[in-house]
Design a protein around this nucleic acid. Sequence first.
DNA 1: GTGGTCTAGACCACA
DNA 2: GTGGTCTAGACCACA
Lengths: 124, 124, 124, 124
Amino acid sequence: MIALNQTSRTPIYQQIREQVLAQIACGLLSPHQQLPGVRSMAIDLGINPNTVMKAYVELEREGFIYSVAGKGSYVSEPNGDVSVIRQEKLAEVKEVLSKLRPYGITKEEIMKLVEMMYREEETR
Amino acid sequence: MIALNQTSRTPIYQQIREQVLAQIACGLLSPHQQLPGVRSMAIDLGINPNTVMKAYVELEREGFIYSVAGKGSYVSEPNGDVSVIRQEKLAEVKEVLSKLRPYGITKEEIMKLVEMMYREEETR
Amino acid sequence: MIALNQTSRTPIYQQIREQVLAQIACGLLSPHQQLPGVRSMAIDLGINPNTVMKAYVELEREGFIYSVAGKGSYVSEPNGDVSVIRQEKLAEVKEVLSKLRPYGITKEEIMKLVEMMYREEETR
Amino acid sequence: MIALNQTSRTPIYQQIREQVLAQIACGLLSPHQQLPGVRSMAIDLGINPNTVMKAYVELEREGFIYSVAGKGSYVSEPNGDVSVIRQEKLAEVKEVLSKLRPYGITKEEIMKLVEMMYREEETR
DNA sequence: GTGGTCTAGACCACA
DNA sequence: GTGGTCTAGACCACA
C-alpha cells in the first residue's frame, strides 16, 4: 500500500508519512483502523523497522494516528487537523509558484499545467 | 543582492545559485558582467567562502557563469540553457501539483491561488 | 469497579494493581473478600486475561492478596505492608516536586494546588 | 552539564530533553547560545549520538531549540512556550496528588513534604 | 505478536 | 566540524 522511491531525496520516513496521510485524507484508512505493524511494514518495504517507526512517531505527534504499546497503531478520530495538511500543501504550492517569475513563466503556462494535471487524474 | 534565509531547509549554496540564476534570467545580470568575488560575497552574507564557492562551481558546471583564474567570475553568453532552468522549475510545479489530489484540493482552488500569486506580482 | 484509561501510558496491569490497592487501602475491599476472577474481570474490561493475571500476580507477590488454586483470589489480612504503598506514593510526590525548581514554580503555587486538590475531594 | 540516571525508567533522551529545558527555563542557556553537538554530548555522556539526536529533534519540534544542519543546534528565542512546560509540570503534580486520597495521606503530610523540599533547595 | 528505546556505526550534504 | 537519515539488530515491557 506504500510505494517508496528509494532514489528520491525525500527521506523514506517522510514518504511513508505522506502516503499514510494521503490515505487517511482520502478515506482509504478510516478512524480506529489498525495500521500495519512497524516490523511487518518494514519487511514489506524492505527497509529497517526504525525508519517506519520514525514515520509513525511523527504521525502520532501530529495527532493523525495513535499507538498503543503492545497492541498496535491506529488511525485517530479526524479532529480537524486534516485541514492542517491541506494548508501545508497549499503553502508548498505557493512557495513554488512564487519562484517562477524571474524565469518568464507565465500565468497561462501554469494554468495549462494545472488543467493537464487534473485532466490526467480524471481519466485515471 | 542576495537575500538568504538562514533557517530555511534549502541549503544556502542552493539559495545563492537560485538567486543568481533568477537574476540572469530576468536580465538583472547581463552576459560578461562580473559577479561579486567569492570572498566579498561571503563577507557580505556572513557565511563561509566555501559555501559561495560551491554555488559558483555549480553554476559554472551548468554553464551559466565562467571563471577566469585570478580575475573573477562572469555571466556566460545566454546559450539556450536558460530554458533548462525553466524546465526544472516547471517540473517542480508538476511534482507539487501531483500530490494534491488525496487532500481534496480542487482545480479551482489552485487556479485561484495562481491568479492571486500573479496579481500580487503585477502590483509590485 | 475498575476504570481503565486505555490511552494512558501507564500499563493497564499497573492501573489494575493501583486501583485494587486503593480499594484495599480505603476499606472498599476487606480482608478475605474475594476478588473478581481473572477471566470475568478481563471480559468486563474488554482486555486480555493475561493482563489481569499479571496485576494479580504482582499483588500476590507484594502480599496484598492471596490466591487459592481452583477457587479464586482474596484480599490478605492487612499486614503493615499497606504503609509500603504510602511510602511509594510519597516517594512519587517527592520525585515530582524535586523537578519543579528550574521552572520557577514557587512553594506558594504548590501549596495552593494542594489546597485545591483536597478541597475538591471533600466536596465529592 | 547533563547528569543521567542510567537506572531510571525515564528514557535517556527524555532526561536530556528535561534537563536542557530546565537550563533554558532558568536562564543557564540563553537564546541563540549554541548547544553541545550531538556527537560531543554523546561522548561526554557515554551514550549513542542517536539518543542525543532524539532529544534534540524533540526539543526542536517543540520550538525550544533550532538546528542548522552543518552548523549546530541553538537555543530559540523565548516564545512564551516556556510557560507550556510549567503547565506540563503542574499537571504532573496534580496527577500525582489526585491519587493520594485512598491511602489516607493527609493534606498536612503533603504540606510538610512541600515545605521540606523547598527548604532543602534554599540551603543548597 | 505489538510499540519503544537504545547501541554501533555508516554515509550524506552542508558549513 | 555539524545535523540528518538509515541500517542491523538487541532488549524491554506489554497484550
